[in-house]
Design a protein around this nucleic acid. Structure first.
Length: 527
RNA sequence: GGCCCCUUCGUCUAGUGGUCUAGGACUCCGGCCUUUCACGCCGGCAACACGGGUUCGAGUCCCGUAGGGGUCACCA
């Protein structure tokens, strides 16, 4: 039988990177064996607009290249793939459990059960429901109903014996049946609860491997009970560790972003993203713009392969040496038995390192294509980009070499796309390179004369020109180069000086030097 | 608190009784390269939670202890 795995997100409107890792492992396991990966939507409790809350999740998976064989938008032989549309299946299963005596109608009120639980706690005894309001016959049921009671359906769990789970990641794990509660599987209004639904669906969808986060490990006995009572054959279980917060072993949660912002690495990532987002006019709201969520990375120009590669290594390794995996290599090598058992902390810095590595492997024109939308959104080029701007973009990308770590970093080179009278000088750089050195203004003025008349305005020639200039002036290249850079780009850092001049072209360079000189004069006279 | 799980450098990890004076990667710190900022290259710091066993020999097996985490819903 072929392997069938699934990932079952709730439509919450966002895609958590921990969830992606779980989905990835499922996807890998199915795909490497030529099986199927199914997306099922767990919306039994959904009050919200499902399609609106689901779209970002689907888009996220598509962006990551994690595709599904069956599920929303693609359909499949077991439709529907939404739990909200499968209620009848669950009700039928509940009925069957009732008939076989594996479940019972319970007429207790919430208050009565709570009272029992609290009493048990007070006496430091383990709580097990007394089944006082259990109705196993029609007469009993009628009697309770005569009191005006409503019933839910509860599982009639075994009160002795041991449940053994052979987990593909953790090995054999045992639970005493007696400690399992008689969980409610169907509410008074007829709607059903998660544990019943998930077991029924896994069976209906012919899921062979349930790969999910460890927090479900302790739920597994009751699910096994349901499955066995229904006569289902059991899937294989694999409980993988969850993704933990940076700097702790707590589960990574999107709601705790304020706390994570105290972590310097997390904060750095967030801020570099936020600065991109602000410039492209995107709302920076922690509920959606958050390094815990996949959208964050897509929005600021990460490569999906980098994120996936990082996530693969969060809790799995091949040999402790190999770190780069193409999709093919992942499919070739992935295996559940090399999944690590302990939780792994999310390390923003290492993720960024993967992104940098991947980005450096992208060719110039592909990189330019990735960067282009950021310039458009920031209003630095026309929409759509015109021919000249595109050519400038390509030159900038080429010259910047490995300085663009994520596509949004193109905005660091904004001054190449701004008009001469629009771009601004970085305060610190201006002071250090122009204001402070006595000679800067003079040298700039002198060198400008040469720039105005040199025949070829290309990097190599300009370099020679500058060296000649240095000799006649008796200065070192650094004395003029740094001032020149600030004058024409406004920035203290950036790619090669001569490339910068060439990209801008003669006219713009001369303009900018004039502007810098007059700015310098203004500041000197004010001082 | 009960139950279950986990525990190697700051972080991700390799390690399945001798080849471990514990390997790789990220970060960090030096140095080289250099017109800035980066990249790159070279080098460095840094870990077997603790205590008992078993064994000729333990990071590796067993038992305890400690710490961390998960879970105990008419949420998923």
């Amino acid at each position: 039988m072929s392997i069938r795995t699934r990932f079952a997100p709730s439509p919450t409107g966002y895609l958590h990177i921990g969830g992606v890792r779980t989905a990835l492992f499922n996807w890998l396991l199915a795909r490497q064996a030529g099986g199927q990966f199914i997306l099922r939507i767990d919306d039994t409790d959904a009050q919200r607009n499902v399609s609106e809350a689901l779209q970002p999740i689907l888009d996220g998976f598509r962006w990551l290249g994690i595709d599904w064989d069956e599920g929303p938008e693609v359909g499949g032989p077991h439709e529907p793939y939404f739990q909200s549309q499968r209620l009848e299946n669950y009700q039928a299963a509940a009925k069957k459990l009732l008939e076989s005596g594996h479940a019972y109608r319970d007429y207790a009120t919430t208050a009565e059960v709570t009272a029992e639980r609290e009493a048990a706690e007070k006496e430091k005894r383990e709580f097990v429901y007394s089944r006082t309001w259990m109705a196993e016959t029609e007469d009993q049921a009628a009697a309770f109903e005569a009191e005006g009671r409503k019933c839910v359906v509860r599982l009639k769990m075994p009160r002795e014996g041991v449940c053994k789970i052979n987990d593909l990641v953790r090995g054999e794990v045992s639970f005493d049946w007696a400690r399992e509660q008689d969980h409610v599987i169907q509410r008074a209004d007829g709607t059903c609860l998660y544990h019943l639904a998930t077991v029924v669906d896994d069976h209906d969808f012919e899921i062979t491997h349930v790969v999910r986060a460890v927090e479900h490990l302790s739920n597994t006995p009751r699910q096994i009970f349901i499955a066995q009572s229904l006569g289902y054959s059991l899937p294989q279980y694999a409980h993988i560790p969850f993704v933990a917060e940076p700097g702790s072993k707590n589960k990574l949660s999107k709601r705790k972003i304020d706390k994570y912002l105290n972590n310097k690495d997390f904060k750095r990532l967030y801020q570099s993203g936020a600065s991109v987002a602000e410039r492209i006019g995107q709302e920076v709201d922690p509920s959606t713009f958050n390094p815990v969520l996949v959208d964050f990375y897509r929005d600021i120009g990460f490569l999906p392969d980098a994120l996936v590669n990082y996530l693969l290594l969060l809790g799995w390794s091949l040999d402790g040496e190999t770190e780069e995996f193409s999709r093919e290599e992942m499919l070739k090598h992935f295996s559940l038995d090399r999944v690590v058992k302990s939780e792994a902390s999310f390390d923003p810095t290492k993720l960024v390192a993967f992104q940098e590595r991947y980005m450096n492997g992208v060719g110039y024109s592909a990189k330019a294509k990735l960067c282009q939308p950021y310039l458009v959104k920031a209003g630095l080029v026309s929409d759509p980009i015109d021919c000249d701007e595109l050519s400038t973009l390509k030159q900038v990308v080429r010259a910047s070499a490995d300085r663009i770590n994520m596509a949004g970093d193109i905005l660091n080179f904004d001054s190449f796309f701004q008009a001469d009278d629009e771009f601004e000088f970085e305060e610190k750089a201006f002071n250090k390179r122009l204001l402070k050195p006595e000679q800067a203004g003079f040298l700039l003025g002198e060198f400008k004369k040469l720039l105005a008349t040199t025949p070829e305005f290309v990097a190599d020639e300009l370099e020679q020109l500058l060296h000649g200039f240095c000799e006649t002036q008796g200065i070192k290249p650094g004395d003029i180069v740094n001032a020149l850079r600030v004058a024409v780009t406004g920035k203290g850092g950036g790619f090669g000086m001569f490339d910068s001049l060439e990209v801008l072209g003669r006219e713009r360079c001369l303009n900018r030097i004039d502007l810098a000189l007059s700015e310098l004069e203004t500041r000197r006279s004010n001082a």
